[in-house]
Write a protein that binds this DNA or RNA. Structure first.
Lengths: 340, 340
DNA sequence: CTGAAAGCGCTTACAG
DNA sequence: CTGAAAGCGCTTACAG
């Protein structure tokens, strides 16, 4: 041993030396190339294991000219990220899939234009293999810009516009809206209202579309005064519900486009002395963790949050491998509890 | 221009050339070294701006031998990460601080031994500048192992043991427990119980300690039968509350060690036909986003989640700069609503 | 199938 | 204060 003691972890050269091959061959084996003899493959793999070799991501990235880190970016205020379990649910799935594929997940919240500029700059610096975007509003241009930079992008939710340019993963919002209408009708409701989501998100429109269609097919057209948008926060649900109730006391069913607003509506109904579901039935959307603790426990349309996260990660990894990627819609599930 | 067109972003050489200095000098300026002439500094900065230069993290890491990426790691099940807004709150703060310092945040959940091994391997690969750990249970050894690898670590919450080896950021759980007891006493409660947290987390013990101390100082000793541990989930809160009520119908106040359990307790009380706060007052801990929507709106002890996240990130960055780091305890705040 | 060699873009002693 | 040079650990044409 003439070389000075290595301070730390094994390097590719160490592996190659131990395996008795060149660094190039070792690299090929570890990269999964098939054009290497069985013998060499075995030797390299054994050496790597014995030395518990871990490739330096930085070196690999520098040499290869590309990064395989993927980013989970929430384009919302930090406040909403915190308040809505939706994000954590998808994040959980994305992280699980990334971990399964031994990828690291980068986490970012971009809520200001400054954040956006920073993130774009970072991405332009070549540090990103791909990015998934959560909560994309109509005026959000960052995903498109990244795409143009050559960075694979996947969106959570269908982007606005007829022919979406970017691949997305979405729950079946239309079917979800239908099922909400369905429970309400079954419950005997005949005069329903809805607390819609923000108009600049397709999820809002799609849920409303399905809700309205199902209602219409049962001879219960939904008039425009009974459709009022909230902003997905509990307080907006509370306010909208109050307004609705004041204007039209005959309402006997409410569909809120997400659980947070449904919970706010429940509070408004309580204060107004209306019992749920007897006087007014309520259906939410999401199935947040606390939906079951509500009073009464909330009937809701469950989004497959974890599956959405996993799916987005997989699509990004596919894109990184040069595979074609197409949008996916995942089924929702009605969870019947006591509120409707 | 004889050189072939650059495909992409500007490199340090480009900046140096444009500024009329050597690459070394350009590097020094951008690294913030003071031993460079004003003239050169200005020239380099201008050139960098004009070229909208962004340093390649990978190259920097490779050359410098260290990484400045910091990891946010949750050592809990993915399920709990999703169910408890606590994590999202701290994550929000950590991300904000990282972004302010132009650092990327790595996100990981380690819930199995396999996850742990994978993460340690990754860290050992030199990819990490530092890591903060959330939800550290008594038998969690990963933080210590990273520390021994020379990677700065900060914990959320005081680790078990008398003389914690690792720096931490913690809410003042003892004071928080005291303030919970205080409201209950003020409310006129004389026979209180507590749904404690998991015994393997110091937060549980500390909250109980404060709660008990305050009670005792008011001549209201807390007997052991009135202390039952849950696991921080709503269902455990529900179950424990039911058991408590069945065993001792005279209970007139309950302190739950987190809001999720408090919400479960509220449900149990409702089912038992006990009114809150008149029959039984309830205090939680955390101030989760939905605490205000509960029935009745929950009185609780707020943890400064975002501040905790920010603080942990700052400590990690300090450690990366070679500065000494010491543990910090942050004040909690009583939020009085209707449940107590 | 395999190796020698160049190069990815930076940082940092080492000499001025 | 500044530059030439070596080197971080890999990948990938280029020749066998």
């Amino acid at each position: 041993m003439v070389r000075p003691a290595r301070t730390h972890a094994a390097t590719l050269d160490d592996v190659a030396a131990r395996a008795g091959v060149s660094r190039a061959t070792a690299s090929r084996v570890l990269a999964g190339s098939s054009k290497v003899s069985e013998r060499a493959q075995q030797a390299v793999r054994d050496a790597a294991t014995e030395l518990s070799y871990v490739a330096r991501q930085a070196a690999r990235e520098l040499a290869g000219g590309r990064s395989d880190a993927i980013a989970f970016v929430v384009s919302e205020t930090r406040e909403r990220f915190f308040a809505d379990p939706f994000f954590a649910g998808v994040l959980r799935g994305a992280q699980a899939a990334a971990s399964d594929h031994r990828r690291q997940l980068m986490f970012a919240i971009v809520s200001t234009d400054d954040d956006r500029a920073r993130f774009e700059e970072y991405a332009a610096g070549g540090h990103l293999g791909g990015a998934m975007f959560l909560s994309v509003h109509a005026n959000e241009h960052l995903p498109g810009r990244l795409e143009r930079l050559g960075i694979p992008v996947v969106l959570a939710g269908r982007p606005p516009g007829r022919r979406p340019a970017l691949p997305f993963v979405s729950p079946d919002n239309v079917a979800g809206g239908r099922s909400a209408a369905h429970v309400l009708i079954e419950r005997g409701c005949r005069h329903v209202a809805t607390i819609a989501g923000p108009p600049d998100m397709t999820a809002s429109g799609d849920r409303l579309l399905g809700f309205r269609a199902e209602l219409a097919e049962h001879g219960l057209p939904l008039s425009d005064e009974l459709v009022v948008a909230g902003d997905f926060s509990p307080d907006s649900g509370y306010e909208v519900a109050r307004g609705l109730l004041a204007r039209d006391p005959g309402i006997d069913g409410i569909f809120a486009a997400n659980d947070l607003m449904a919970l706010g509506a429940l509070r408004a109904l309580r204060e107004a002395g209306r019992s749920v579901p007897d006087d007014v039935a309520v259906v939410g959307f999401d199935d947040v963790p606390l939906a079951a603790q509500a009073h009464p426990p909330l009937t809701t349309v469950r989004q497959p949050l974890e599956a959405m996260g996993r799916q987005m990660t997989r699509m990004l990894l596919d894109a990184l491998d040069g595979l074609p990627v197409t949008s996916v819609t995942l089924a929702t599930e009605l969870v019947v509890r006591d509120s409707a």
